[in-house]
Each structure stands twice: as C-alpha cells, then as structure tokens.
Design a protein around this nucleic acid. Structure first.
Lengths: 349, 349
DNA sequence: ACTGAGCACTCGTACTCATTGAGTGCTTAC
DNA sequence: GTAAGCACTCAATGAGTACGAGTGCTCAGT
C-alpha cells in the first residue's frame, strides 16, 4: 500500500502516495474520493486540509479532476497512466484462475474454437469486454496448398501454415478444371512457394508463376487475380471476436444509458476496435495498455484497452479486454498476459 | 384501414375494427392509445364513451390491457396474434429495398460470408435484432470427403455437400498416417457413403465400415469415435449470427435499463435463441411468428421472433429478426420472407 | 338495447422548493 | 509547511402540488 517508486518525474513522495490512494480507491468503489476519507483511512498523519492542498496540486498537474465543486477527486487518463507506470503493484494470478484457464482452453484443438473459448473466458474472469483477434497469417510460413474441387465451378483452397493453422477459401472458377490438372498446379505451387511467408508470397507471386501462365485453363491467371484474397490478412476475414457484453454492463458507469449506447456502438463497429488494435500491434510485443483518450477515437475515449500478443512461430494475434478507464488494472494486466501466453503455448502444441 | 376480415372467431365487426386501430397505433407510436383518440381520428361516428365500452370488452377477452388506470390501452400478446392473423394487411416490399438486398448479397460467393452480410442487412433494414443460422447440414446429401494431413498429428477433414456447401473439421490423430493410406481410406469412404444424407451416415456409419476396422493405423476407429463431430449439426458449430444491437436499442422500450439488460442477456445467451428457433423449425417451413410469451422462455417473453426458412436441396437454415412485441409486423414479415427466399436462390446458384 | 354525455376518480408525470451533506477553497494561526 | 476554521458550492433527495390524460360508471335519449 505504501510503496512508492522513485523512478518518475515530477511528483514528490507525498504526491505520489496520495495519487496512489485516490486512484486505488476510485477503482474499487467508483465514487469520487475526498480528502477527509484519505486522511481517515490511509494517511492518518496528515490532516484532510493538507491532503486537499496536495490534491489541488495534483489537479493542476493534470492527474486528477473534479466532477463538480463539491465532489471528491477522480483520476484523469494521465492519473491512471502514472498509476500504472509507477505506482501500481501487479496482483499475482491465483492458482485457481490459472487452472480454470487451462481447463477451458484444453477442451478443443481447433484454433478458431479455442479463440472463441478464450473470448468467453476473458470476459467472464475480467468482467470486461473481451477481444480476441484471429492470427495474422501474413508472417506465417507457407507449408502447403491443397486444391479441392467442390462443384464444377467451385474450388476449395486450403493453405496450411507451418504452425498447423489452416486457412480455407472458397474460389469461384469460371470453367471446369480437370482433377489431374488441379493436382499438377497444386504440386507446382507447393514446390515454388514452400518455405516462404504468406507476405513474401503475396509480393512475389506473379514473378514466381510467370512461366506457368500459358497453361490452358487460366487457373494460374485466376490465382494471380485472387492473390490478395488468398495470401493477405483481409479485415473481413481476420475478424475480431468480442464478448462479455453481459459482464461489462454491470459496472456502475453503465447506469447512464448514454454510456450504454457508446459501448454498443463500440461492439457493433468492429472497425474502430480493429483500428485501435493495429496501433497496439505497432507499439510493441507483449502487453499494451491504452487509456481513455490515448485511444485516438472519439467513441473509445472513455475506455481502456489492455491487450497482449500471442506468437506462434511468427504468426501473431492479440487477446485482451476493453472496459471503462476505471478498471482493476493490477488484476487485468496479469490476466491478459497469462492468457496470451497460454494460448500461444496451446496453439504451438 | 377499415377492412375487416370475417374468418375469425369471437369478435364482431366493431370490436375488430377498434382492436385494429389500437394495435396499429400502438405499433406506430409506442404510447398507449385512448378511446378519445380513436374517436377523433378513426371512428368519428362513434363517441369516445362507446369506444370505451368496446375496449373494456376487448380487455375482458384478453386482447388489450392497461398499464394503469389512467392510461390508454395496449395490445396483449393475444391482441397482436389476432391482429397478425386476421386484421393486418401485409405491406409490399419496396423495389429499392429489394434492390438493396440483392446488391448486398451479391458481393460474395462464400456461404459464411453471405450469411454474415444477411445478418447485417436484416438488422439495418428492420431496425431489429437479426438472426441467421448456418445451414443444418444433417439432411444434406453427402458428396465427398477429403482427408488432408496438416501436421503429423493433425488432419483436416473436408466434407462437401451436394449443394456446394462444405464443412471442414480439424482432427487430432494419435499417430502419423501415411499419405497413401489416407488416400485409400478416403477413397473407400467416398465409395460407401456417396449419396446418403449426413443424418443417415451418422446413424449407420459403424455398420458401413465394420469390415475396415481391422486396418493397421486405427484411423477408422478414430472416425467412428468422431462420427458425431463429423456428421451431426452440433450446437457449437451451427452457430447463430446475431446482429443489429445498435439498431434495436433505439426503440423507446429501451429507455428502461431493465429491458436493456434483458436484450443483452438474449444476445449473449445464444442457447436461448437456438432453442426457440428449433421450435420454429418444428412449426413449419415458410415464415413463423411467435409473439411474447408464446416463446416459452422467461427471458424472451417480451420479444417477438419472425423467421423464415431458406432451403437449398434439403439443407435448411433460418433467417429472421427479434424485437419487442411492439414491432411493425406488416413490414417485417414480408422482409424476412423475401430475404429468406433470396439467400436460398443465391446459395443454390 | 344501444349510444353518448357528464362527472368523479385514479394515477403517472412534471415541476418547484427546501433540506441535507459531502467536499472544496481560502484564510489564518502555528 | 501544516492544520484548523469557516463560508460556499452543488448534487441528490424528498415532499408537496398542479396537471392532464384516460377510465369507469351512471343516466338520459333514441
């Protein structure tokens, strides 16, 4: 409770301590915390009036704010940021929760299914919205391609990645293609593309199959046209799973129907989330926290995102949670981190 | 407005007419309709007092109810039912809307993708929750199976159905299986299962492969164990797509946060919906409307379901909408009906 | 026997107003 | 720099009131 790091900038020890208490309490209770309360419960050595002085300073520095004159203090985004970076103590994940995570995720070996389970799980444990993105296959290493005729005009293309993840795409072909020709094209593609990443393939596909273009059926031409569909992470396909709406709306911030709308908007408008997650990807591997207005989007400016990367031989994706900026970071961050690592392990097994 | 059918039971013409007006108006405005209002706007020949008498009768018969003494009348579930069955006039779908539906659904030829588009579309046009189930493959006719080794211990099973729909399942195999053996098993399965429905296959699979069980790798044994996973519509897999939350919460019924919760509950708890849709399947092909408490589920007792079947050579699924019992049935029913027919056409093309 | 006018009654909604109490900010004394 | 005192602000609460929509019932007219 009283520990204070000093690798920080502008705040002296007392200021840090009081900021800590304000943030901590507000996260727990959702009610603005007043000077008197802190004096009574935490800093008995200081009077309420002194604490008020410090609080006024913290407010001027942008760490705290005031809903209205006669209310207690509430952390700003900057306040949360300082709290997370310097003050907060991570809360170890309980063994029971670890067990629960493993049990839930052990149920299946289908990657998609597992990600769905992950989404449900994160939502329930964290009481926040959960977000799980399917893996970005672009940087995955091509293992092999398989072409399966479905009807005379439809072709199922199965691309498998070294980690054991597969992508299946239904392709419309104009004319009927003979099975042996299909096999032949498949064999050639496998030879030429083996060992490359999907990303590399997309960029160099045309060159690699240039000499094949003269073949009769135009199958290769079709592949060239569809190269983006086959080898790129389209936003359409790489959907993000969002779950746990039921859990999140229990939070007191959602008594106000306005906030209610905003969270629904966020859920329905996946694009916003996808876009903000891209920012997370750019930031770094490992876990990332963005708070409130740090998310450069109007709709998300009252929410925090906590996400972690899972990485299976270069194929990466993100799992995480979204919730009101007032959330239990010290508990949620380790949770997200652990879940990310766990599914990475599961997927590579 | 004034048309009154007489193929009905207990209600005389005047009662029907007034019931009609009450339901119609309440659907439009969401405010309880009073006797005076009807007298003024629709039945000028009758005084408010007379209309009150009729309303009292309708209430006693269970078609109308009273939020409280000094409020107007509101239809009960039974009132809506009578309205839909005998009074309502279907509203033709506009050409612009038909066009919009076609344009949106023409974008893709991937079945899953198309169903997702359908979901979005229905939600937007109807301003209700949209529901779309993926096709029940059980009654589809087996076309062929394809076994594709992914890693040494993982196998992708592709089952294609006559209509061109495919199901892919990732299977864990204990030991490594040689490619030629895989091909051999695949060939045999194709020979023996061809032309049967998945349903038939599930029931008779063990008999049909009895003589193959002695082969070395135990692959057949594995198939027998997984027969449910492969040939049955599991509730896990046959997910129902739900969309349009944003649209539905604009309705005035959702100013009350309690209703808000209930709709979220409904969305999160897909099982409830799946279960209620099964009831729809039992009822009949074509469109089905269930109103409020007709849905045998506590959570759904204030919502109506309107769904239609799409049928592609025996493979069927449902599309539809969910909304407050107060919904514009005369518009929504033709919409659902039309969309169902359209995607059936699209899928079989 | 049906219709409709009149009237008392109910009840939810909206509005005002005073009270309360938490909490601040400032001033002043130590 | 610390704390005590005090005036001030402002949201929340609840009581009181007026309003009005709408019903239910009665009774007179046709």
């Amino acid at each position: 409770m009283g520990e204070v790091t000093d690798k920080n900038q502008s705040l002296n020890e007392r200021e840090q301590s009081i900021l800590h208490h304000v943030v901590y309490n507000y996260i727990q209770t959702a009610i603005p915390v007043g000077s008197r309360y802190i004096s009574k419960h935490f800093e008995s050595s200081l009077s309420a009036a002194s604490i008020r002085n410090v609080m006024a300073d913290l407010e001027e520095l942008g760490f705290l704010s005031h809903p209205h004159t006669s209310a207690g203090r509430v952390p700003t985004d900057l306040g949360y940021r300082f709290y997370i970076d310097y003050l907060m103590e991570m809360q170890q994940l309980g063994d029971d929760e670890k067990l629960r995570i493993h049990q839930q995720l052990d149920q299946t070996n289908d990657a998609d299914e597992m990600l769905r389970e992950t989404s449900k799980l994160l939502g329930k444990i964290s009481h926040q919205l959960s977000i799980v993105t399917s893996p970005h296959l672009s940087s995955g290493v091509f293992e092999k391609i398989e072409l399966i005729p479905i009807t005379s005009s439809k072709l199922l293309v199965v691309i498998s990645i070294r980690t054991g993840i597969v992508r299946t795409i239904m392709m419309e072909v104009g004319v009927e293609v003979r099975r042996d020709h299909l096999d032949q094209v498949g064999r050639l593609l496998n030879e030429r593309l083996s060992g490359l990443t999907l990303h590399e393939i997309r960029d160099s596909f045309v060159d690699r199959v240039r000499d094949m273009q003269s073949e009769q059926t135009g199958l290769i031409r079709l592949f060239i046209e569809s190269v983006d569909q086959l080898f790129t992470d389209s936003k359409e396909r790489d959907k993000v799973l969002i779950g746990g709406t039921k859990n999140i709306i229990e939070h007191p911030e959602f008594i106000d129907p306005k906030n209610f709308r905003s969270v629904i908007e966020l859920i329905e408008n996946e694009d916003i989330i996808v876009h903000l997650l891209e920012k997370h990807d750019e930031l770094q591997k490992g876990f990332v926290v963005t708070i409130g207005a740090e998310n450069k989007d109007e709709t998300a400016k009252e929410y925090s995102f906590v996400t972690g990367t899972y990485d299976v031989e270069g194929v990466t994706g993100r799992v995480g949670i979204i919730g009101p900026t007032r959330m239990n970071y010290s508990k949620v961050i380790p949770l997200v981190d652990y879940v990310a690592q766990t599914i990475a392990k599961m997927l590579s097994a």
